[in-house]
Design a protein around this nucleic acid. Structure first.
Length: 592
RNA sequence: GGUGGCAUAGCUCAGCUGGAUAGAGCACCUGCCUUCUAAGCAGGCGGUCCUAGGUUCGAAUCCUAGUGCCAUCACCA
């Protein structure tokens, strides 16, 4: 049993036997480092059932614990805080149970529990991925890995927004101004090429608006009447009607984009188990709108449009099908959700990684799916995250004010290279080994930078100020891992050595306490969908290790048993760093 | 205007279900490489936890109101 649970039972027993009172719960916290002790019981809440001086009560409970619990060695009471000292043997026993576990902190998938499907990325197919997508992808991937590590099966997926006016704009601009350019002919990544035409469209569109306005049209009218827009809208109708040439061009240009995305995803180091395409699921959505109409979940207005009334839930009426019978975004999302459960009947819930600008949309979507009567609808979660903004404001693809994902990753590797060269520790590394390492460190810095902040908070990214490589950063943690590997190359950790009877150094005990928290952190991070919890935990662990490393000699320990303990403890810390970073999607280097 | 989110050191962020003198990193200042990798360690400086009320033995944390920033409220996605 967990030590805290044991103590809780005995505190309750103490209150019962000393004061004949029932305690509902016991409040714990970590003992502050200025006081002696390892675990602290807060006495104040007990005053509700026991009248008296908190210090006196603390003393009495403390004495009871020393008498009744083997692991409790001593205690002291400061104000209303009962600080309990735990015997070293408890921590050594704990260490013996985890020292050989390569998957420490992770739980095996429980066969009883349902799988979770996590959606992330969800790009439009008219432009390359940028820093905003990077946050999305990193969050989604990490949350998937965290949920897996917590003991549930996970399917990673995305919905590709491959149809709509946005892609028609790129197609039209390419048709008009492209002169038959291809990724091969230009040497450009496919997504970049298509993105260029999306920008081109916007430029031409703005010119036409200006022209119409100089002829006396209002801005609103000019925006509606610009010929290039009207042509793009016609193109969308042609596409929906299945026009051969339009569909062929659509297929071709989308395939360019997908090739480009694949390169970027591979670069970032994320993957998917299954892809869904909007062009395939919006029809299923329509079917279910028809069903919802029959079951009275929806209603039809006179003009033929279909709505869902959510006023009872404090929201508005929401359209689910246009009067001309075409699908809106909501229609397709209904279809996609249902399709996913059809494809994976073991899925009992879904996580949607989508920016907080769509909070309202998902509130509505989840309510609608409940109204349609799906029991899994209660297990839907919108992993809503804050925007990534630049000092100049919002990123806009159309206006070219974006931080491109590929460029950013490359820049990070260059920074890693520059710092590495300055430190000059890798003289004997081959060119290839170095390249790999620079990428590991650069990506580590970027991913950690983004994942360590609470998802719901906005990130302000200044491209001029490079991401740090010191302090609370990915490279700092990677560095600590590499240091430990260096020790393990000198002395192999023997996991069979028994460490009973060892007297622990304060720094060692602190490390063991921190290690003990890891499995709980993973469970917590899964429940809260927060990689930031794992990142900040890992940072604390690494800080503790570095303090240990600089203050205690590992290889120069007094006895062989002590030396092997320190080596094995270091090894366990390395394993924990590696495991924690793996759920963040960050690799760890053997040297750096 | 309605709704939702955010507000903690000069900057970037932690702070779990309310608990001890609010913690880190960066920046700035002091020390520490002949010994396990100094991308490190040890220490210093730095706070009206947005404001005002309230609940409580106790509030950065919970409640109410206000202020500021952001998002959203389309037969857009």
């Amino acid at each position: 049993m967990h030590l805290q649970n044991t103590i809780e039972l005995h505190v309750k027993a103490a209150i019962k036997s000393l004061f004949q009172a029932e305690l509902q719960s016991v409040e714990f916290q970590a003992t502050r480092k200025e006081f002696a002790g390892d675990i602290t019981v807060v006495v104040f809440p007990m005053l509700r059932v026991v009248k008296g001086n908190p210090v006196v009560i603390g003393e009495q409970v403390g004495q009871y614990l020393v008498n009744h619990v083997d692991e409790v060695k001593a205690f002291n009471v400061v104000k209303g805080f009962l600080n309990i000292e735990i015997d070293d043997s408890y921590y050594i026993n704990f260490f013996n149970t985890i020292k050989a576990k390569n998957d420490y902190g992770f739980s095996k998938p429980k066969t009883s529990s349902k799988a979770v499907m996590v959606e992330y990325s969800s790009p439009n197919t008219n432009k390359p991925l940028h820093l905003g997508h990077v946050r999305n992808v990193l969050l989604g991937y990490s949350v998937s890995e965290i949920i897996k590590a917590s003991g549930q099966n996970v399917y990673k997926t995305q919905i590709v927004n491959d149809r709509g006016i946005h892609i028609c704009k790129s197609m039209l601009a390419w048709k008009r101004y492209g002169n038959g350019e291809t990724p091969e002919s230009t040497g450009l990544k496919g997504d970049k090429l298509v993105g260029n035409y999306y920008v081109k469209f916007d430029q031409e569109y703005k010119k036409e608006i200006a022209g119409l306005m100089s002829e006396g049209q209002s801005e609103d009218d000019a925006k509606k009447n610009a010929p290039i827009l009207i042509e793009a809208q016609q193109m969308l109708r042609n596409w929906e009607a299945g026009d051969k040439d339009t569909v062929a061009l659509w297929t071709l240009m989308n395939s360019w984009v997908y090739d480009g995305f694949d390169v970027t995803y591979k670069n970032i180091g994320v993957d998917f188990d299954k892809l869904y395409y909007e062009s395939n699921t919006y029809l299923l959505g329509k079917e279910f709108v028809a069903q919802g109409l029959k079951s009275d979940a929806f209603f039809k207005k006179d003009d033929g449009s279909v709505w869902c009334d959510l006023t009872e839930d404090g929201l508005d009426e929401k359209i689910v099908l246009r009067s001309d019978g075409t699908a809106v975004y909501m229609t397709q999302d209904i279809g996609t959700a249902i399709q996913r459960i059809k494809d994976y009947p073991d899925v009992g819930g879904m996580v949607y990684t989508v920016g907080n600008e769509q909070d309202y949309h998902f509130k509505v979507l989840f309510l609608i799916l409940k109204k349609l009567g799906f029991d899994w609808a209660k297990n839907l979660f919108h992993l809503s995250y804050g925007m990534v903004d630049l000092p100049s404001g919002k990123m806009k693809s159309r206006e070219g004010t974006v931080v491109d994902a590929d460029d950013l990753i490359e820049d990070m590797a260059h920074t890693a290279e520059a710092i590495s060269n300055e430190l000059g520790k890798l003289e004997d590394y081959s060119e290839n080994e170095r390249k790999t390492l620079y990428k590991t460190i650069g990506l580590g810095a970027l991913k950690y930078y983004i994942l360590k902040v609470d998802p719901k908070k906005r990130i302000l990214f200044d491209p001029k100020e490079s991401i740090d490589f010191q302090g609370n950063t990915g490279p700092f943690i990677q560095y600590t891992y590499a240091r430990i590997q260096s020790i393990l190359r000198k002395v192999t950790s023997d996991k069979s050595v028994d460490f009973s009877g060892l007297k622990l150094h304060d720094k060692e005990k602190q490390l063991l306490k921190q290690l003990e928290l890891f499995p709980e952190i993973i469970q917590n991070a899964a429940v809260q969908h927060s990689p930031a919890l794992v990142a900040n935990y890992t940072y604390d662990l690494v800080k503790d290790f570095n303090s240990f490393y600089q203050n205690v000699s590992i290889l120069g320990a007094d006895t062989d048993q002590e030396k092997m303990f320190r080596v094995t403890l270091s090894s366990a810390v390395a394993t924990t760093i590696k495991n924690a970073f793996s759920v963040l999607g960050i690799a760890v280097p053997e040297r750096m």
